[in-house]
């Protein structure tokens, strides 16, 4: 095989016109275009496949900062209790909340959030298995979150794909439930690694299921030693004050940081 172009011939002459075309702007560097004698060109690209998403995530971070929004990407398997948790959060957390809902179909979840008293926008992903940063970017102008509020992005129920797509959020919060099996962190390690906070939900059902809480916590910390874990029941109310406290602390840190930044600007 020719080592230069990978074709099946042994060595053969290659003309290397190093054109160094700057086609994609300075952030990507020049493409090195190598022409060879049989007119196939080798283009050294070195481009990240997710760069388009990551650039949109960067723009989202700018929008969140401009409106002093705390943005939380709430992820879980289907049916872990995300929407129930959010209904109570809207009513009880003492923070202005607005929600972007991601589901493959229907606006049921957004309807539930609106009924609880918060502004909500539904994104239907159709066949898509996750939300991406561009969907969030498009949703923000119509949602118009009030400055200083908590923006929760309720991702599509899926423990695989949403781990890969940065939305520009401040933190991923992972909701797992005791009906799912205590070995889940080892089976879906990417999501458990990506999360900052893990809520173990439906703890009111513990007497009825064989779920070993310490085995689960051990597996979660094996994958992510820095993970904080809270035990909650979004229906009975266990642990919710701790969850609201976590949100208020993050929101407070963010306001303190933006006040400090504004102070630095004035000086």
């Amino acid at each position: 095989m020719c080592a230069t172009c990978g074709c099946s011939e042994a060595a053969h002459p290659h003309e290397h016109h190093h054109e160094h075309e700057h086609r994609h702007g300075p952030e990507h560097g020049p493409d090195h275009v190598h022409h060879d004698a049989h007119r196939s060109r080798r283009v050294l690209l070195e481009r990240d496949v997710l760069e388009k998403n990551d650039r949109a995530a960067g723009r989202n971070r700018g929008s969140f900062a401009a409106r002093r929004l705390l943005a939380i990407n709430l992820v879980s398997a289907p049916g872990a209790g995300k929407t129930t948790l959010l209904e109570r959060t809207v009513r009880e957390a003492g923070l202005p909340v607005c929600v972007i809902e991601g589901d493959q179909a229907t606006s049921r979840d957004a309807d539930r959030i609106r009924a609880a008293g918060a502004r909500a926008l539904q994104i239907n992903t159709g066949a898509g298995c996750h939300l991406d940063a561009e969907m969030i970017e498009r949703a923000l102008p119509s949602l118009e979150p009030a400055p200083g509020s908590l923006l929760v992005i309720e991702n599509v129920g899926n423990l695989v794909c949403p781990a890969l797509f940065d939305l520009g959020e401040h933190a991923k919060v992972l909701l797992a439930s005791v009906t799912e099996g205590d070995d889940k962190p080892l089976k879906y390690p990417h999501m458990f690694r990506a999360a900052s906070l893990l809520l173990l939900n439906k703890v009111d059902l513990l007497p009825h299921v064989s779920f070993d809480v310490s085995r689960f916590a051990g597996a979660a910390r094996e994958v992510n030693p820095r993970l904080s874990i809270l035990h909650t029941s979004a229906t009975r109310g266990d642990g919710l004050q701790a969850w609201y406290g976590w949100l208020r602390a993050r929101s407070g840190e963010l306001s303190a940081r933006s006040r400090a930044a504004a102070g630095a600007d004035r000086r």
Binding site: C5, G6, R39, S40, R41, R42, V43, L44, L45, E46, R47, D48, V49, L50
Partner: peptide
């Protein structure tokens, strides 16, 4: 990594 290293174009 999830990156296109290079292409061959004819």
């Amino acid at each position: 990594e999830l990156r296109i290293r290079e292409l061959e174009v004819v």
